[in-house]
Design a binder for these strands. Structure first.
Lengths: 138, 138
DNA sequence: CTTATAAATAGAAATGATTTCTATTTATAA
DNA sequence: TTATAAATAGAAATCATTTCTATTTATAAG
């Protein structure tokens, strides 16, 4: 918990009960959740809570490097705790339980070389979504 | 044009003026476009045209393998003509002119091996978005 | 410990993409 | 030519997300 609170401070974000509750939720549920999931789970403990607040907090925590975003199949954003905030990496999402695991491996150089040579283009960014079944669900 | 009309027939889709117009648009504009772009461009020639029709046609043409989908930064779907309907491949999108180019290269095996070994998971699908500047825009 | 201030929040309302629904029209196969 | 299922328009509904405004709160300075 402490490193996350430190991250809040580093990003000039006040430590509020709502933000702490959101972080706690992700620490406890190590899966990806969308704004409405978070809202639903927190509403029990914090009856006075607005959905726009959840949207905003998820966005702020992402900018602070505490959460990462991933696109779900319905094109809505889901969030999960990021434990590798600094290194370039990808994420594996379990299609059954929604668990997110970090993948510290990227062999994107080959594709980049191919594109820059064959298409004579400049590659600026890439985003990889990997899905499947985690060790428990398969 | 003929191969696309054949693809319509193969998918039991009637050859209608609207569908032909959408295909024609993508043949002429070799860039990615969203439903509203398509609607705007076609509305000039076909004043009687509904936006839901455009949404539906784009979806049908995608299922028929005539178009491919790509997610734009705002998480909305964009479409482009697919000239490699059968082979697994990825797409490069120019950030400036929206042109889509097909990338006949995929070195996903390395990542898959890494994940299946390290996480003991089963990889079922991957989706790669590559962006940058095309040869003309860079 | 107060207090001042900017930041954070609730709740209502607006926005905007996408889908649904129903009546009408149309492509096409017989 | 005609019957039929498929396609379409246009209005309306849906639903995620954002904006707005008044109120509350974290926190830094005294």
């Amino acid at each position: 918990m402490e490193p996350y609170l430190r991250a809040l401070k580093n990003n000039r974000l006040k430590i509020t009960p709502r933000r702490k509750a959101v972080i706690n939720l992700f620490v406890n549920y190590r899966m990806r959740m969308g704004p409405y999931d978070v809202y639903g789970k927190l509403k029990k403990k914090l009856p006075i809570l607005g959905l726009p607040t959840v949207y905003r907090i998820l966005d702020e925590l992402t900018k602070a490097g505490i959460l990462i975003q991933s696109l779900s199949e319905d094109r809505q954003l889901r969030y999960a705790l990021c434990t590798l905030p600094d290194a370039h990496h990808h994420h594996f999402t379990c299609r059954k339980c929604s668990k997110i695991e970090e993948v510290e491996f990227c062999n994107f150089k080959g594709v980049t070389r191919f594109i820059e040579k064959k298409l004579n283009a400049k590659v600026e960014a890439h985003q990889l979504q990997i899905e499947g079944l985690c060790s428990e669900c398969k």
